[in-house]
Write a protein that binds this DNA or RNA. Structure first.
Lengths: 124, 124
DNA sequence: TTTTCATATGATTAATATTTCATATGATGG
DNA sequence: CCATCATATGAAATATTAATCATATGAAAA
């Protein structure tokens, strides 16, 4: 019996609809990392990162591997690279100034938007 | 000054991370519809559909056109078709039974999951 | 086999997003 | 222009999701 599209699809997109998880994805784009490393680089609580890694893992956006005491997470590039490319293409074509896809009501107010966020700084 | 990837990207995915909006997307995949039609087919309040259409419109996932008294919304297929294909490919490869991408904690409990939901029925 | 480093888990609290309801605005035919 | 159909808007009420904190579990070196 086939899964409802709306349900699986909702899980797919909602897992990506989170600044912390997007920051993790961006970080893992460069290289695999263990949990402690990720939490240090993103300057967030270990347990918070762990919770979010699990969400990404459930959808197989990332894979994990135990190496000695540490568990390394890596990006599922097969899915994530085309997905991020599609996003980039769309946003450059349809939201060139950011104004089209963003308005004052939709600004992110969470921690990762703050100045301490490496991604926020990296992509200004 | 380039927009922060995390912020625009968050808007992109969070706009799609909603069962009502996914249902609208699915509906518009077949043909353009006006607001009243959409709300009747999905059996939801007109104002609720209207709010959600605006979210989709802000991200240019849909386009709109006034025809006489009615406003028709149509899908941005350039973006949405490859995006949905990518989702389908991923979910079939990595979440074949639904079990990998879904667990008991992540079941949707909203209206559109209920038996009256045409999408839910259509994709069982 | 115990200590330490590393990660995961669960429940509570805090933050955000969505729906709803009442009403305003828009378009157009009469 | 007035009536009416059609859609949009805003604020309040609900519902959902995320972060936090305390603690449990796991892996391996000593």
């Amino acid at each position: 019996m086939k899964q409802s599209l709306s349900e699986t699809c909702y899980k797919f997109f909602s897992t990506l609809a989170n600044p912390t998880r997007l920051a993790i994805v961006e970080l893992l784009r460069d290289s695999p990392r263990n949990v402690t490393e990720i939490s240090q680089i993103l300057n967030q609580e270990q347990s918070m990162i762990s919770h979010n890694l699990q969400r990404l893992d459930e959808c197989r956006f990332i894979f994990s591997e135990q190496r000695k005491k540490k568990r390394f997470y890596s990006l599922n590039k097969e899915t994530m690279e085309p997905l991020l490319k599609l996003f980039t293409y769309h946003s450059e074509k349809y939201c060139p100034t950011g104004g089209k896809c963003l308005n004052k009501n939709n600004l992110q107010k969470r921690k990762l938007r703050e100045a301490s966020d490496p991604l926020y700084l990296a992509h200004q």
